[in-house]
Computed example of a mutant assay.
Amino acid sequence: MIKKTLQLLLLITSTSCGQSWNTNSKDFLLSGNGIDPSNTNLVTAFAVINDECISCHTGYHNSWSTLNTDQLWIANGSIVAGSALSSPLITRLKNRGGDMPLLSPTLTETQYNALINWIDAL
């Protein structure tokens, strides 16, 4: 019994995604991501991006978790400062006729507006 329990525990820990935060409680917003908490637009937008984009993608999109300033998002080419509707991050959304999030419904109006407000305010 103890051996099976240890094997199960080992399996669970070895197959975790390696995150050091709980994405459901937004712990990552409070620890280690480097986002300035006073940048409330980015904090709110990043929560949407984490829940609806980063959590499904691997590889290239893993780099998005390191984009912790507006300037890094602009330099990455994902957003166009002051022009949400011209930003690739927005044009790819189902809300705008794109195909993302691929296996999920469109973003809620609140989520979509958080992204639009963040980018347009830059």
Rank of each mutant, 00 (worst) to 15 (best):
I116A: 05
W64V: 08
L11W: 14
S31D: 08
C53Q: 01
F46N: 02
H57Q: 13
L67C: 02
T40M: 09
S86D: 14
L115G: 01
L89Q: 03
A121S: 14
T66R: 09
N22F: 10
A47T: 04
N39I: 00
S87A: 09
P105H: 05
N113H: 08
S104T: 06
T15C: 07
L10E: 14
I90L: 04
L6K: 12
L103C: 11
L102W: 10
L103D: 12
S55E: 09
E109M: 07
K94W: 05
N117M: 03
A114Y: 01
S104E: 13
A45V: 00
S86T: 06
G98N: 07
E52N: 15
F46S: 03
W64K: 08
S63E: 12
D120G: 04
N41G: 10
G82Y: 02
L72S: 07
L102R: 09
A81T: 01
T108K: 02
H61Y: 14
K4P: 13
T91I: 11
L11M: 12
V48C: 03
W118L: 03
S20L: 10
N50H: 13
C17T: 11
L30W: 12
T15W: 07
N76R: 13
V48I: 11
S14Q: 11
S87N: 05
S78T: 05
S65L: 04
L89M: 15
D99L: 12
W21A: 06
Q7S: 15
A121Q: 02
L107F: 07
A84Y: 00
T13D: 11
D36N: 15
V48L: 04
N33C: 13
N24Y: 13
W21F: 14
N33T: 07
T13A: 13
L30K: 14
A84T: 00
L9Y: 10
L115E: 00
L29S: 03
R92I: 09
P37S: 15
D36M: 01
